[in-house]
Simulated scan of single mutants.
Amino acid sequence: MEDKMKIKEVIVVEGKSDTIAVQRAVKADTLETNGSEISESTLNQIELAQKRRGVIVFTDPDFPGERIRKIISERVPGCKHAFLPKKEGIAKSGKGLGIEHASCEAIRLALGKVKEEMEDPDEIIPWEDLIAAGLVGGSKAKQRRELLGEVLNIGYMNGKQLYKRLKMFQVSKEEFSQAMRRVLQEEK
């Protein structure tokens, strides 16, 4: 039997199926939000986990998953975030998207590339740079943001969320430029 990667932090997932998938891939404790209506009790547990061991938010790469991530980030500052690329979370049947459908390898890869939130971040990438790069407004903006999210390992997001995440994860101008070169190469 192979030795599983051990995660010190508590991993916040959406439900029981996600817990099963994560625990199949790594040794870790999880906390389940039980969907996008996170209770006050669950938020209190996440706050306690963050104080004692740290928290990794690992939600599905879809709208409800992003909503949960945002609620937790606003309530519990300083969390770490793991992002599963959409293509890794699609069910074999094609019906369903989420961590529960991802391979153990994809889960380990996502948890191995955790990003840490920075409190009171400085503005690094100006909004104008996002517009100039074709990431906001324009026929290829959504596709470019999706690719950029994969390259930087910060997940998919709309333009405003991209701006916030670049800031939150302190992505440097150099990192951003390198990632955009890759995005433009893959676009061809």
Rank of each mutant, 00 (worst) to 15 (best):
residue 132 A to T: 07
residue 153 N to G: 15
residue 148 L to W: 07
residue 102 A to R: 04
residue 58 F to Y: 11
residue 90 I to E: 06
residue 186 E to W: 13
residue 167 K to Y: 08
residue 180 M to Y: 06
residue 148 L to R: 06
residue 136 V to S: 04
residue 119 E to S: 11
residue 109 L to I: 15
residue 149 G to K: 12
residue 100 E to I: 00
residue 95 K to V: 12
residue 18 D to Y: 00
residue 55 V to L: 06
residue 75 R to M: 10
residue 14 E to H: 08
residue 64 P to A: 01
residue 148 L to K: 09
residue 175 E to I: 09
residue 134 G to C: 03
residue 169 F to H: 08
residue 127 W to P: 01
residue 169 F to T: 07
residue 176 F to N: 00
residue 103 S to L: 02
residue 159 G to D: 03
residue 29 D to E: 14
residue 140 K to C: 11
residue 177 S to A: 15
residue 186 E to A: 15
residue 140 K to T: 13
residue 88 E to I: 00
residue 114 V to I: 05
residue 129 D to R: 14
residue 144 R to M: 09
residue 154 I to A: 11
residue 131 I to C: 11
residue 148 L to F: 06
residue 67 R to H: 12
residue 103 S to E: 05
residue 172 S to G: 11
residue 37 E to Y: 15
residue 95 K to C: 09
residue 14 E to D: 04
residue 141 A to H: 06
residue 31 L to Q: 05
residue 147 L to I: 14
residue 147 L to P: 11
residue 118 M to I: 14
residue 116 E to N: 13
residue 70 K to D: 10
residue 75 R to L: 11
residue 34 N to S: 13
residue 130 L to N: 00
residue 169 F to Y: 11
residue 164 K to M: 15
residue 101 H to S: 07
residue 143 Q to A: 15
residue 156 Y to M: 14
residue 96 G to M: 07
residue 90 I to L: 09
residue 31 L to N: 04
residue 98 G to A: 00
residue 125 I to A: 11
residue 111 L to R: 03
residue 78 G to I: 01
residue 185 Q to S: 15
residue 183 V to M: 01
residue 188 K to I: 15
residue 179 A to E: 00
residue 74 E to W: 09
residue 170 Q to V: 09
residue 171 V to I: 12
residue 97 L to Y: 03
residue 86 K to T: 13
residue 147 L to F: 12
residue 169 F to L: 06
residue 91 A to P: 11
residue 115 K to R: 09
residue 60 D to W: 02
residue 50 Q to W: 09
residue 133 A to Y: 03
residue 33 T to C: 07
residue 180 M to L: 10
residue 17 S to W: 11
residue 102 A to D: 01
residue 159 G to C: 05
residue 125 I to T: 10
residue 18 D to K: 01
residue 107 I to E: 04
residue 68 I to P: 00
residue 63 F to S: 15
residue 50 Q to I: 10
residue 74 E to F: 06
residue 111 L to E: 05
residue 20 I to E: 12
residue 154 I to W: 11
residue 126 P to G: 05
residue 2 E to I: 15
residue 62 D to L: 02
residue 9 E to F: 03
residue 186 E to C: 15
residue 119 E to F: 08
residue 162 L to N: 04
residue 64 P to R: 00
residue 136 V to R: 04
residue 163 Y to L: 05
residue 169 F to P: 08
residue 7 I to E: 09
residue 22 V to Q: 05
residue 167 K to M: 11
residue 130 L to M: 01
residue 180 M to F: 09
residue 170 Q to Y: 12
